[in-house]
Amino acid sequence: MVSLFGDLDWGIVAEITLRSLKVSGLAAILASTIGIPVGVLLSLYNFTGREFLKSIFNTLLGIPTVVMGLFLYLLLAPKGPFGFLGLLYTEMGISLGQMLLVLPIVVSITATSIEQVSEEIYELALTLGASRAQAVVKVISEALPGIVLSSIAAFNRAVAELGIALMIGGNVFVYGGLANTRVLTTAIQMHVARGEIDVAIVLGLILLSVVFAISWIMNLVKKWL
């Protein structure tokens, strides 16, 4: 039986935590799949509109999640232009929304970390006999720690954001339900609103631990790279 007033049900806590990991993990993976190539293109190749694209991504970097959430909500509502996708109040909806949110992070950290090494590493590789293509590969592999960092930063932002999870997810929870969308941040917000601050604190600590653990693991990976 669900405890309605603050007593923690660890089964529910586990469900919500796993969902946070799953939903935001997918968001970070998708954002990396799209954002890393875009970041590489933006930093290594000159083409018309490059500066314009870059400035768009830089602007999107600071977009408040509630604005993004509202925007997506209007697009995804059944009578909105993308309503037919059926994404509103679904896990996939949150993932895709968060993916859009963190995409600029991946793009700009990737681009910056490549730009930081590109000139000198590119030339160094050329002096050592690399072809232009090989030199580009070397530049990217030199920027790898920064690229990995962009994915962690993306995950951490996704898992900790509230606006999209709430507007697109709806914080749906049915005990034993198969289509729930409650995640850590929406649960925290709800428990705060309900005055159950102690539950909110426990969930907050779990959220922090998740963020720390992922960052720590990724740091190890980065060292090993």
Binding site: M1, V2, L4, F5, Y89, G170, N171, V172, F173, V174, Y175, G176, G177, L178, A179, M190, A193, R194
Partner: peptide, 25 residues
């Protein structure tokens, strides 16, 4: 929603009728 009453309602509907009532607050 924040009273928790609807949590109880959702639980009853799931258990008794197999219907998932999604309350959006």
């Amino acid at each position: 929603y924040d009273t928790g009453f609807l949590d109880e309602v959702a639980r009853i509907f799931k258990e008794k009728y197999g219907i998932e009532v999604h309350f959006i607050a």
